[in-house]
Simulated assay, not measured.
Amino acid sequence: MSTAAAGQSRPELSIVRTFDAPRELVFRCWTEPEHLNRWCCPKGFTLPHSEGDGARPGGSFKTCMRAPDGTEYWLAGTYREVVPPDRLVFSHRWLNDRGEPEHETVVTVTLEHEDGRTRLMLHQAFFLTEASREGHRQGWEETLDNLAEYLAK
């Protein structure tokens, strides 16, 4: 890759996981608050606040994740595409201390049926830095671990 091309690359994140659960259930866990609010944060974090007007194109959400040390991380987004039980696309924006949105990325979750299980492919783009991408990778990996535990119950 040329130096010019390397300077223009924008970090992306891709994670693939397989869950021992039907695709329809995994999709509902991503779109229904009674499921989503029980697993959708990294290990040790809690969700003291979660609101939204539904997983539908144009629907929005706002969530607060509280870290074990008490630090609160607010994020918001808008659903761009909702295709049960195959695909979910939404924006992801961290909110600063004034509640204003910062850099926006787009998360795409694709679900495939695989021998009674569900293969999940998560893609998030584009990050401003590789460090930001790697921080999100760690958060998503832990969050998906929580989803696996939740589905096992």
Rank of each mutant, 00 (worst) to 15 (best):
Q124Y: 03
F27M: 05
R137T: 14
A21T: 05
K43D: 15
F126T: 09
W94C: 01
E24C: 04
L13N: 07
R56D: 05
R17T: 05
P33Q: 08
K62M: 14
T46S: 15
F90H: 13
G135D: 11
P42L: 08
C40W: 14
G58W: 05
H35C: 06
Y79M: 07
E142Y: 09
A67E: 13
G7Q: 12
E12S: 15
G139H: 01
S2K: 12
M1F: 04
R137G: 03
Y73H: 14
F90R: 09
W140L: 07
V16E: 12
E72I: 07
T110P: 00
E134W: 02
Q124M: 04
L122A: 02
Q138P: 00
R66Q: 14
A4R: 08
L111A: 01
Y150I: 10
E100I: 02
T108M: 03
T78G: 07
G54S: 05
A131N: 06
H123W: 09
P48L: 07
W94H: 04
A55Q: 07
I15A: 04
A21L: 10
R117H: 06
R98D: 15
G70N: 10
A6G: 02
Y79S: 00
V82C: 10
F27V: 02
L25F: 07
E81G: 04
R80Y: 00
A55Y: 04
P48W: 11
